[in-house]
């Protein structure tokens, strides 16, 4: 549905997006991940025709962003970061205005506003000025604005940034609900959010794509090495390292958090075999008090850190 080809964007001398290319399929919820300044917002601004690319193009269905901006804008709803809206306007008036710009007829307009008020849970603030709303409500109004034209594609830039945990869950639920019918592209640096809401993630770092995969595939491909966490009392790190090195399949042993006679280490496993039994057998022979022994499941967070730090 969306094809990004050799997209590059320069701000003066600074390259914000560097020759990226990927495709987004219809009905997909795509998470755009990356540290601050990675180029996520710039990409979204180009996709929504707010900015022109320095090189390359984006094809949305049969239209490209350079020649058919208006057609693309019609099939797209966009919520920028922090939902910048008109603070003096009432929520109801604002949604009316957006509906008018999107050329909805009177009947459809009223139905749509009513429907969105229910979907985004903003009915109780419809007659309040936007400037007086809490951040969570502003975000919901922004979301309602983005969905007003019933767009095929929704582009959401950090839709949960700055919200409290309850609001985050509510917004995620809304996104999941709409994601059943629409193609959604959302950017975030909250990795649990991408895990919870997206089908696929594209990780961008310094303007370049460093990973593009389904979440599960990404975890599998990069997460073959398990990590075992151990904590001991009366143990010396050098000795622990030597003892554990005897087990075939043990990779690195890293001291993580020690103090007050406690030594905590992370043991990375180079093999997919379960080596916990062998490790335990060796520990049992030593004069150490074993306080903790657990296998860590590798989260997207570990993968994200590896990818964005390496690059």
């Amino acid at each position: 549905m969306i094809k990004v080809e050799n997209l590059t964007k320069y701000y003066g001398e600074i390259c914000a997006v560097s020759d990226i290319g990927f495709q987004i399929n219809k009905g997909e919820i795509l998470g755009l991940l990356g540290p601050n300044g990675a180029g996520k917002t710039t990409f979204m601004r180009i996709l929504t025709c707010y900015l022109n690319p320095s090189a390359g193009t984006i094809q949305v269905k049969d239209f490209n962003i350079q020649d058919h901006a208006l057609e693309i804008k019609k099939m797209m709803g966009y919520l920028p970061e922090n939902a910048p809206l008109y603070p003096d306007m009432l929520v109801y008036d604002y949604l009316h205005y957006v509906a008018d710009i999107r050329q909805l007829d009177k009947e459809t307009k009223l139905q749509r506003i009513d429907q969105l008020a229910a979907t985004c849970s903003i009915r109780e603030v419809m007659h309040q000025p936007i400037g007086e709303l809490s951040k969570g409500y502003k975000q919901r109004v922004g979301l309602a604005q983005a969905m007003m034209g019933d767009p095929e594609i929704l582009v959401l830039d950090e839709p949960t940034s700055g919200l409290d945990p309850n609001q985050i869950i509510e917004i995620r639920e809304i996104i999941k609900k709409i994601g059943k019918e629409k193609t959604i592209i959302l950017s975030t640096h909250i990795l649990s959010e991408a895990e919870a809401t997206c089908d696929r993630v594209v990780i961008i770092n310094k303007g370049k794509i460093v990973a593009d995969s389904l979440i599960e595939d990404l975890k599998q491909s990069l997460g073959k090495e398990a990590v075992i966490g151990l904590a001991f009392r009366n143990a010396d790190f050098a000795k622990v390292k030597n003892v554990l090195a005897q087990v075939a399949g043990v990779g690195s042993v890293v001291e993580t958090d020690s103090g007050e006679g406690i030594l905590a280490v992370n043991v990375s496993c180079k093999t997919q075999e379960d080596i916990r039994g062998q490790i335990y057998a060796l520990i049992k022979e030593q004069d150490w008090q074993l306080l903790e022994f657990y296998q860590q499941s590798r989260s997207l967070e570990n993968i994200f850190r590896e990818l964005t730090q390496e690059n």
């Binding site: 966009y78 920028p80 910048p84 809206l85 008109y86 710009i101 999107r102 050329q103």
Partner: peptide, 14 residues
């Protein structure tokens, strides 16, 4: 300044 310009210019207007 407010940022609503970004929303406005991504609506279907010229």
């Amino acid at each position: 300044y407010v940022g609503s310009y970004e929303v406005l210019m991504t609506l279907p207007v010229t």
